[in-house]
Design a protein around this nucleic acid. Structure first.
Lengths: 346, 346
DNA sequence: CTGAAAGCGCTTACAG
DNA sequence: CTGAAAGCGCTTACAG
């Protein structure tokens, strides 16, 4: 019933043309206040909602924002969706989710059809899709604006939002150093993710600034998964000569470290301090709870949606806009004073 | 460029009318094979993709499926999305995600606009939205088909897909009983979720069938969250008189139990067995890994999408179709023989 | 088996 | 400040 109400009904009831109704709907200027009020009253009376397909077909807006992601941490992607949708709803936009297999050979074939038959007004790209050139090429070819969250390469290719991953990792490392730790293991993230390198850099910088050596055997490759953190921790901790703290560059890997510590009967944080990064739900789902860095994921996605909705643009040759949000060091129970405090060679 | 190709271009190139192109596109019968081939060749040559907005405006399909959810476990909702999208893509459909605050007073106000201005061909409802009468009323009013995943009430109000939660809980309880446990604690899920009651029933039935008493003080209310599981476990385990096993009716709560066990220095599984339900990613992110029930979440969502896409219908007065998928008992390391085995009063 | 016409519900471009 | 006309790219309903 109510879905059959069209712009003509509103026009008739308010005694104006459909064009004027359209003006009011789109908040165009140059409508007499009185006319505007009459139209809005009619909209309310009839409970009229403009048809998105018709608007999209006739006009230049689709009222659809896309989110592309690949093999995400569920907590991360859910936060992204929630943050983006909150902002989209304010403007009557909807969110289309498009998982991608971005390491496959046929990325082009995955992306092309979804862009060709459904117009989106903008797309939010999360890691690692945000560093995928094929996806960006396709988007540019179709002239679809996109904003990237925490890209790692080609920073000036699009607008972006993120946080200072390097500084956050620096501060977390500093937190460990302040607790007396001098021998700290570090687990790297997935090499395809831009944040991986920034977090490593923050760790290296903090160690260097404190005059502490970064021993190669204390840097282990991980892939942001629990399993990769688990395996890296086994290499790091099985030996008697082990670090007094491990900084895993995301929470999933840090949980892997906790599991290994548990298995090896290393008490956390008395014998071993463990730090993560992201503040995913999992960080609180462990005992002791994880010291980590809170990423404002939903806020970043909201900011990305906002840039898309307000039509972010920049001059030829100028740097595209970027918004950097604040992170927060969340010190919980998994980090404590170094057990070697007071010992020589501490 | 390629986005400007329309049905008219295809018609011109293949020497037929646009109506015939439309027939081929929609796989209508009654097109000469030769004609069909020519049209398909032209579609391929031009790389033509029909415009969804136009199809939607002119026709009866929107090529959009919605997923409504509320406060989901991230792992659950991600699996639902992945499963639904896989099926949707086969038919050229896209997925719209709509988080809802289904306990708020304004559910109606949240749902009405999203249904009014964007036509969806069908909607998938996950718990607890799948038991929300206001949402279902709105959907029925707008004549939008919906399929529910694991609803708990009003089972014959719509098509549905699910698994046998009662039987799964029964088998898990049986697994514990077979290990010699006679004193088993049970943590209930959120009362708004249909699965909560089925899982409780499975537990109660298995205990009864084994001639074991279900003591009220061994049944604790939880809400499917880690925190609620943690608090329930504190009540269950702090006393010397504690069960030898705890069956938490989802994984998040089981992880809460593990954390409490860890804190109380109760070895799992030697002193305490812990079982969960869902097989979320978290189940493997703990040490020891969790014994749990694997829900085929993605497959359930795929089946729900399938029912929507194939246009599930049923006769007046008949029971709507329902598809029940198989679960799997996943025995990992968190359950073991009862420590009271061999003792009197077992 | 195929096509010409009308129309879905809006916005655009133009006119006044 | 407001409106009449045209058209977005398809499908529907009808005709043959």
């Amino acid at each position: 019933m109510s879905s059959k109400i069209t712009i003509h009904d509103v026009a008739r009831l308010s005694g104006v043309s459909i064009k004027t109704v359209s003006r009011v709907l789109n908040r165009e200027p140059n409508v007499k206040a009185d006319t505007r009020d009459r139209v809005q009253a009619a909209v309310a009376t009839l409970n009229y909602r403009p048809n998105i397909s018709a608007r999209s077909l006739a006009g230049s807006k689709a009222y659809l924002i896309g989110v592309f992601f690949d093999n995400p941490s569920p907590g991360y992607i859910t936060d992204v969706q929630l943050g983006a949708i909150a902002r989209c709803r304010e403007e009557g936009y909807h969110l289309i989710v498009e998982p991608l297999d971005s390491t496959a050979d046929d990325v082009e074939a995955q992306v092309a059809p979804m862009l060709a038959n459904l117009r989106m007004d903008g797309v939010i790209l999360t890691a690692p899709v945000c560093d995928n050139a094929i996806v960006m090429d396709a988007l540019e070819r179709e002239d679809i604006p996109f904003v990237r969250i925490s890209p790692g390469s080609d920073l000036d290719r699009s607008a972006r939002v993120g946080m200072d991953d390097r500084l956050a990792a620096y501060e977390m490392t500093r937190h460990l150093i302040d607790l007396g730790h001098k021998d700290i293991g570090f687990i790297l993230g997935h090499p395809d993710h831009g944040a991986t390198h920034l977090r490593r850099q923050g760790f290296v910088d903090a160690m260097g600034d404190a005059g502490l050596p970064v021993r190669p055997e204390r840097m282990e490759q991980g892939y942001f998964s629990f399993r990769s953190g688990f395996e890296a921790a086994e290499r790091l901790l099985s030996d008697e000569d082990r670090p007094t703290a491990v900084f895993a560059s995301n929470d999933d890997m840090a949980l892997g470290v906790m599991a290994v510590a548990n298995r090896l009967r290393l008490n956390v944080p008395e014998t071993l301090s463990v730090a993560g990064f992201d503040d995913t739900p999992g960080a609180k789902v462990t005992w002791p709870q994880l010291t980590t860095v809170r990423q404002p994921i939903a806020a970043m996605a909201g900011a990305a949606a906002d840039m898309l909705l307000t039509g972010v643009t920049w001059d030829e040759g100028a740097r595209p806009p970027s918004r950097l949000l604040d992170f927060e060091l969340v010190v919980r129970e998994s980090t404590g004073p170094s057990p070697r405090l007071g010992l020589t060679n501490g």
